[in-house]
Amino acid sequence: MMTKDVNVNQLANAVMWWLSYTSAVGRNYVLSEGSIKFPVSEYLERSTIDEIELEYGHPKLSRKRFDLFFKKNSAEKIFFEFKYIKNGSTRTQDEKQRVFNDLMRLHLIHDTDNKAYFLICGNQSDFIKDFQKISPNKDQFITPRQKDSLPTKIISEGFYTKWFSFDANLPDKEIDLNDTVKEYKDIYDLFFKEYAGPHLAKTMTALDRPDRIKTSLVFLSGNLEQPTGLFQPAKIGIWEISKASNYS
């Protein structure tokens, strides 16, 4: 059987077209976070890798697992976490917390030969409105100082733009874990509160809190125009998670 080297862009395209096909034939009901493992695994089984494992135990967190792990060239270890956007799930506080938890779990495995990726996908419409360009749940306005002026609506760049770049020309984003904005600070604080125990149990050491972590856009699929009434094609993004330049 012919094999090929793993290419993250090709892997992303395989997932995107598999999701789009599944949607086009009317089987949207099978699409979920767990279903992403099928096209990823099928792609990797035809690739030059030494080992592949689903639900791989985290080496530094007790009772925590990665969605997928594989090894290249007998040394390079690759870790993936998956998310599937459905019914506005990424707008909820619980899911925002889970996304950040995924990023931190990936960040924690960085040794010399490790690489860590976060993959998120969904139908194109949901991806854009519920992740890439998510807007506030309620309209927010700035009250003007001048008596006769009208309130100005705050234009949100999107909750997740603090964590992820959507611009291939500026792919890197550094996440400030000392952010004092409450909606982010609460998420960061809760991770280190809840994961201190699993880290101590696995490594017998305290869980350090870095000042920053880094995400880098690896792949973001383009938008496909579809006539009204046809199925929504899939959209996918992949980011590599690593240490920030001023990691401490």
Score class of each variant (00 low, 15 high):
230 L>V: 05
246 N>F: 13
17 W>L: 02
17 W>G: 00
3 T>G: 01
29 Y>Q: 12
184 Y>C: 00
159 F>R: 06
36 I>E: 04
204 M>R: 15
5 D>T: 09
183 E>W: 12
66 F>H: 06
57 G>H: 04
141 F>L: 11
38 F>R: 02
16 M>R: 13
41 S>M: 04
45 E>R: 10
210 P>G: 09
151 P>W: 04
52 I>T: 09
66 F>T: 06
137 N>T: 08
163 W>I: 02
200 L>Q: 14
195 Y>V: 06
243 K>L: 02
244 A>Y: 12
238 I>Q: 03
48 T>W: 01
116 A>S: 11
226 Q>C: 04
70 F>M: 05
139 D>P: 07
195 Y>H: 15
201 A>V: 11
243 K>F: 02
124 Q>P: 12
196 A>N: 11
35 S>K: 10
178 N>D: 14
15 V>Q: 10
172 D>P: 02
128 I>T: 13
98 R>L: 07
227 P>L: 01
172 D>A: 14
79 F>Y: 15
36 I>H: 07
223 N>V: 12
222 G>F: 00
146 Q>W: 05
87 N>M: 03
138 K>Y: 13
134 I>A: 03
225 E>H: 10
141 F>Q: 04
89 S>V: 07
6 V>Y: 01
126 D>L: 00
140 Q>K: 15
182 K>F: 13
176 D>M: 08
84 Y>F: 14
134 I>W: 03
206 A>I: 11
60 K>M: 11
142 I>D: 11
236 I>G: 09
220 L>V: 08
215 T>V: 07
244 A>H: 09
101 N>Q: 09
158 G>D: 08
128 I>L: 13
149 S>G: 10
218 V>F: 04
144 P>N: 09
18 W>P: 00
75 A>K: 13
172 D>I: 15
201 A>Q: 12
48 T>V: 12
89 S>G: 13
18 W>R: 08
81 E>T: 08
110 H>R: 08
77 K>T: 10
206 A>H: 13
99 V>D: 01
88 G>H: 05
22 T>H: 03
173 K>I: 10
192 F>G: 10
